[in-house]
Amino acid sequence: MPVSFDTHGGPVRTRKERSFSGVVVGAGRLIWPVFLVSIRRLVHSKFFYAALFLAALPVCLAVIILPSQMGASIGRLHLVLESFLRTVFLAFVVFFAGNILGFAVMRQEIDDQTLHFPLLQPTPRWALVVGKFAAALLLASLLCVLSLWLTYLVLVIPTQGVFALVKDLTQGGRFFILLKESTALVLGLLAYTTIAMFMGSFLKSIAYALILLAWDTGVPYLPSTAKMWTVMHYLQSLLPERLSQQRRLFELLGEPAPVWLCLVVLVGLSLVFLAGCLFIFHRRECLYGET
């Protein structure tokens, strides 16, 4: 869609661009350059390397336990991957990757004292926040989902061979299960990234994440309805193969939440925190702590 400009270089909106699809396309145009510059900044930062390290952990763990799984059945490997998902991915990798990248994408500009550069450009502040959010979420999602699939491949190929892998993915339906699990990871990242962005818009330290981690991992084990107030409960409930069905740990924690509730809570929570972040960033002055 060609864009025309007014005498000051601002885009002139046609009637078509004022329609719903035009507004969406227009918003995309505003967000896209922010997204690109945020991705470029993040991938060169120490925060990205920290997230990369976190994402590499499950793969390394899979390599370490591999000798003990030689000769194990495919069903056994699924159980191993399932426990990886709950204990390593959801409770650790997703939590920290989301929090680190979400926090960094907001704090980086302030801590590096470069916030004035985007603020001096003619991009609305909401587009700056949404573009940054999209960058952090995409990077975190790529890392975590790739890590999940690599962990699966590392566990299955050396023990079962390529033919068994293909059979498991196609006939065994594992491909769709992995897709659902990947979606659960992305939803977890969505929630944690927005929480972290909100915190990063006014806190200087990421120490809040430790409190959140303690809450999210500790509360579900309490015999009360307090677990309804944790992100982890809904993420665990979203996993396609529930341990509760196998009468394991989740039985202790009570019934998992229905999928629709998980989706509503996780998406709703993310929207609330993103809105909070927008509100704070909208009022933010470019001061860097000096007078």
Binding site: V3, P11, L36, V37, R40, F117, P118, T123
Partner: peptide
């Protein structure tokens, strides 16, 4: 990157 934020292509 900064000039791209002007949305002028």
């Amino acid at each position: 990157s900064m000039l791209r934020l002007h949305q002028r292509g």
